[in-house]
Amino acid sequence: MMEEEELEFVEELEAVLQLTPEVQLAIEQVFPSQDPLDRADFNAVEYINTLFPTEQSLANIDEVVNKIRLKIRRLDDNIRTVVRGQTNVGQDGRQALEEAQKAIQQLFGKIKDIKDKAEKSEQMSHDQAKTIRRSC
């Protein structure tokens, strides 16, 4: 029963991960790679058979496993770096937004000051005009 569920899960996962040939070609053009793990037609059994072509080569299994673990560690580090970079971009965006909001508030304050001064100036002009009319 458990094997059937695992098999169904693997089949569902493979169905989701199937990329169209066009998408696969685009990925290969943007990120060219000679690594067999990156191939669209990757076959795990063939890959393992190339790593261990004979029974005697199984003596090196610890070395191969350590190399694969190192590769996984490097990939994890790369993923962490990218994720942190995205987080920093988000933080930088928030900071830029806050700075823009402050600048807008300052601009509105200056506009209000200019408007207030203009109203005072207009009022003074009216007062002076009245004074001039009375004296004439």
Rank of each mutant, 00 (worst) to 15 (best):
N49A: 13
Q18F: 06
I104W: 04
D127I: 02
E6D: 11
D92T: 00
V83E: 09
G90Y: 01
V65H: 07
V10T: 12
E12V: 01
K102R: 14
A44V: 09
F9Q: 06
T54Q: 02
D35Y: 03
I72M: 15
E99K: 08
I114S: 07
E99T: 05
K71G: 03
S135F: 15
E14I: 02
D116Q: 06
R133T: 09
V30C: 05
G90K: 00
F42S: 06
P21L: 07
A96K: 00
V23E: 10
K130M: 14
E55H: 08
A44E: 12
L97A: 02
M1W: 08
D127T: 10
A100V: 03
K117V: 00
Q106F: 11
Q105S: 15
L70C: 05
I132D: 10
A15S: 13
H126S: 04
V64C: 01
I104T: 13
G85W: 13
E5L: 15
V82S: 08
K102N: 07
K115I: 04
Q95V: 01
R80K: 13
T50I: 05
V64I: 07
V23N: 05
A40F: 06
L97V: 03
I104R: 12
R80G: 06
V30R: 15
Q101K: 05
A26G: 06
E14R: 12
P53D: 12
L75R: 13
Q56K: 13
Q29C: 06
K71F: 15
R80A: 11
E8V: 09
E11A: 10
G85Q: 11
E5S: 15
K110E: 14
Q128T: 11
A100F: 07
N66D: 07
K110T: 07
R39G: 04
F52T: 00
T20N: 05
G93E: 06
A129W: 10
N66A: 07
Q18N: 05
V10H: 07
D92E: 07
Q101S: 10
L19G: 01
S33W: 09
E63K: 06
V45M: 05
Q56P: 00
R134M: 10
V82W: 10
A59K: 14
E3H: 09
G93D: 04
D41Y: 03
I114C: 05
Q34Y: 10
D76I: 12
A100E: 08
S33M: 10
E3T: 05
E14N: 14
I104M: 15
R69I: 10
Q95Y: 09
I72W: 08
S57N: 01
A118N: 03
Q123R: 10
P21G: 10
L37H: 03
K130D: 14
L7V: 02
Q128W: 11
Q29N: 11
I111N: 01
D77K: 14
E46G: 03
Q105H: 14
G93V: 00
Y47S: 04
Q34G: 08
F52D: 01
S121L: 02
I27H: 01
E119S: 01
V82D: 03
V23Y: 02
Q123W: 01
P21Q: 11
T81A: 14
K67T: 02
P36H: 08
K115R: 13
R39F: 11
N88F: 04
R73Q: 11
F108P: 01
